[in-house]
Design a binder for these strands. Structure first.
Lengths: 335, 335
DNA sequence: CTGAAAGCGCTTACAG
DNA sequence: CTGAAAGCGCTTACAG
C-alpha cells in the first residue's frame, strides 16, 4: 500500500479510500491509484485490515465431525455455505471440534472469527450457552428446544414427516414404522432432528389411527442390514416405512431383500432428509424427501452475517421443508 | 495484553515472553503473569500476532468442490487434515473454489494464508504453476505428471492396482475389466488417479497375458446401473472387475444383479481407493482396497507445514498404498 | 531477566 | 477532496 501510494503520488490514506470506496476521491486521483495498483499487482493485506477494523471477515462452521457421520447432505450444505460466505465477502472455516463448550471458547476468544455457525445442534446444547455468555455472534443450523432469542435455520422435520405419512396414506398404507439414527453416544439431551421426527411420528400416527412402531439403528449400512433381519422377523405387519438415516438405508433395504421382503411390493419405503445421491445407492432407488441442504447453507450464512452486521435487527428464524422426490420404493399397498 | 501487563506489574513485552515462551522469564514473574492471565481470562489475539509475525498460521485446503463429487474418502481426508493442523498450531480453511489458477491468486495474495494444500490435482495443473510463480508454499494431495521440485502426498495407485490384480489372479481369474470415473468435464490434461490406474491396469494385464477391458462411468449410482446393463450384454467373458468409482459402485452392483449376474459367483469385484462406508452400501458388501485417507490428511498437513517452516529442507514426497479388506464380492473363479 | 520503542499493514477520526 | 497521525494487538531487536 505504501508502494502504491508512492507510485500514484498520494498518501496511503487515499489509497485506502479508493480500495474501500470509503470516501469521495477525485476521478483523476482514483484513476492514478487504480493504475498504480494494477502496475504493482497490489492486493490489500487482510491481516492489517482485520486488525485495524477489529473484524476478520471469517466465520467458523462448527461441525462435530467426531460424533456423527459426515453425510452427503452435510457436505452439500457445507459447500453451499462456503460459496455464500465468499459471495458476501467472508471466509468460511470448517473447524472440526467436539461438542465441548470449552473448545468453542478456545476458538472465539482468540479473535480469529467474527461469528460462528453451529451444526448438529442438540436440544439442549452447551455450546449455545457458552456462545451466549461470551457474546459471540452465532446462528444455528438446527435448533435448540427453546428458540427464544436464537438465530437459526432448520429443516422443518415436523411438516416433512407429516408429508411423508400423508403420501403413504394416500397409497393406502395404515401400518407404519419409523427408523432413525438415534441420539449417538452419551448425549442425554437429544439430537433435534431425531427427537422432532419421533414426536411428530408418534402424534400423527396416533391422531389418524395408524399403527406406528419406532426403531433405531446406527448410522451405517451394516447396522441397517442387522436391523432389517430383526425387522423381517418381528414386524411383518408393517407396510410403510420412514427411514431417517441415510447411511443405514441401503443396508436396510438390502437386508429386507435377503429376508425375502420385496420393495415396494411388500413394504414401501420413504427416506427422509436425505440426498438423491445416497438414495440412489439403494436398490431399488429410494423415494425420498430431499433435505434442502443448499438452501440451508446459504440461509445459514446469511443468518450469521446478519447477526454480525446488524445485531439489533430481528433474529432470523427459518424452517424449510424437504421436497418429495419419486423413486422406486413406494407404491400402493397390496390387496 | 495491556491489562494483563498492568495486572501483573510487568511490561507487555514480558507478557509476550511468557505467552510464547520465547525468552527466559524469572519464575516469580512468570507466575504473576500467568495468574493475571487466568484472572482476566486472557487469550492472545491471533490477528495482532499474525500482523507482527507476518504469519497467520492458516492453511487453505483447496478442494474444487464444483467439479468432482465429495466422496466419503475426501471427507475423511479433510477431517484428519484439520485435526492435524490443529495439533500443530495451524488452522485449516476449506476453500471451495474452481480449478482456476486465477482464484488461487485471489486467495493467497491477500496474505490470509501461510500455505496451500491442493486436492484433486490434474496431471498438468495450472494451479501448481500459479503457486510456483507466486512463491506461495504449497503441497499436493495427488501429484502432477512431473513431480520434480514439488511436495506431495499421494495414493500409490500403481501398486494398489497391481495388488488388486494379484489378489484376483490368485483366485484364478484371467479376464479383467477396470471401471473408473473418467476425467470429468472438459479437463484435457487428465485426472491423475484415473490416468495412473489405467496405465497400470493396461501394463499389468498385458505383461501377464490377461485380458483387460477399460470402461468409464460418471460418479453416481444411476450411471453405474446403466453401465452394468451394457456390461452384462457386452462383456460376459469378464469374471474379475476393478472398480475405481465409489459412487457408481453400489449402482453398478445392483445393475449386475438385475441383469442376472451374481456376485461373487459369476463376477468378482474389488473396489479401489474407496472407504468401508461406501463399500458397505453395495449388496453384497464390496471387497476393497481402502484409501489411506486419514494418513493422507495427516501427512499432507505435515508436508505443507514443512514447506512453510523449513523451505530449504528436502521436499516431502510420499506414496501410500491402499490396504486390502475382505468383503463379500471376490471369490475363486468358477469351474 | 526486564522494559521502552519501533513496526507489522491497514483504517479512520481529525484537520486542512 | 487529500494528508498526517494515531491506533488496532501483538512481536522483537536493542539496551540495560
Amino acid at each position: 500500500m505504501h508502494d502504491v501510494a508512492q507510485h500514484a503520488n498520494v498518501s496511503i490514506a487515499t489509497v485506502s479510500f479508493v480500495v474501500n470506496d470509503s470516501k469521495p476521491v477525485a476521478p483523476a486521483t482514483r484513476e492514478r491509484v487504480e493504475q498504480a495498483m494494477r502496475d504493482l499487482g497490489y492486493r490489500r493485506n487482510s491481516v492489517g485490515r482485520a486488525l485495524a477494523r477489529g473484524k476478520t471477515f471469517i466465520i467458523a462452521l462448527l461441525y462435530p465431525a467426531l460424533q456423527h457421520h459426515f453425510s452427503t447432505t452435510a457436505v452439500r450444505f457445507f459447500t453451499s455455505a462456503a460459496a455464500q460466505a465468499r459471495e458476501r465477502g467472508y471466509n468460511l472455516v470448517l473447524w472440526p471440534i467436539s461438542n465441548e463448550a470449552e473448545q468453542v471458547t478456545e476458538l472465539t476468544a482468540t479473535g480469529l472469527v467474527d461469528g460462528v455457525l453451529l451444526m448438529e445442534v442438540q436440544l439442549d446444547d452447551s455450546r449455545v450457552d457458552e456462545l451466549e455468555r461470551r457474546k459471540t455472534p452465532f446462528a444455528l443450523i438446527g435448533r435448540t428446544r427453546d428458540t427464544e432469542g436464537i438465530a437459526f435455520v432448520d429443516v422443518d422435520f415436523e411438516s416433512t414427516v407429516e408429508a411423508a405419512i400423508d403420501h403413504l396414506m394416500e397409497l393406502g398404507h395404515t401400518r407404519f414404522a419409523l427408523i432413525d439414527g438415534g441420539y449417538g453416544s452419551g448425549n442425554l439431551s437429544g439430537y433435534g432432528p431425531v427427537a422432532r421426527a419421533r414426536g411428530t411420528f408418534g402424534e400423527v400416527t396416533a391422531q389418524r389411527g395408524l399403527s406406528g412402531v419406532m426403531l433405531t439403528c446406527d448410522e451405517n449400512s451394516e447396522a441397517g442390514r442387522e436391523l432389517a433381519a430383526e425387522f423381517a422377523l418381528e414386524h411383518r405387519e408393517v407396510t410403510a416405512l420412514l427411514v431417517m438415516n441415510e447411511h443405514a438405508a441401503p443396508g436396510f433395504v438390502a437386508g429386507l431383500r435377503r429376508a425375502g421382503i420385496r420393495i415396494p411390493d411388500d413394504v414401501s419405503v420413504i427416506s427422509i432428509g436425505s440426498s438423491t445421491d445416497m438414495a440412489a445407492m439403494a436398490d431399488p432407488q429410494l423415494t425420498l424427501m430431499i433435505s434442502p441442504a443448499v438452501e440451508l447453507g446459504r440461509m445459514g450464512v446469511d443468518a450469521i452475517i446478519e447477526r454480525i452486521e446488524n445485531p439489533q435487527h430481528p433474529l432470523p428464524q427459518t424452517l424449510l421443508a424437504c421436497t418429495f422426490t419419486q423413486g422406486g420404493s413406494a407404491s400402493r399397498v397390496r390387496g
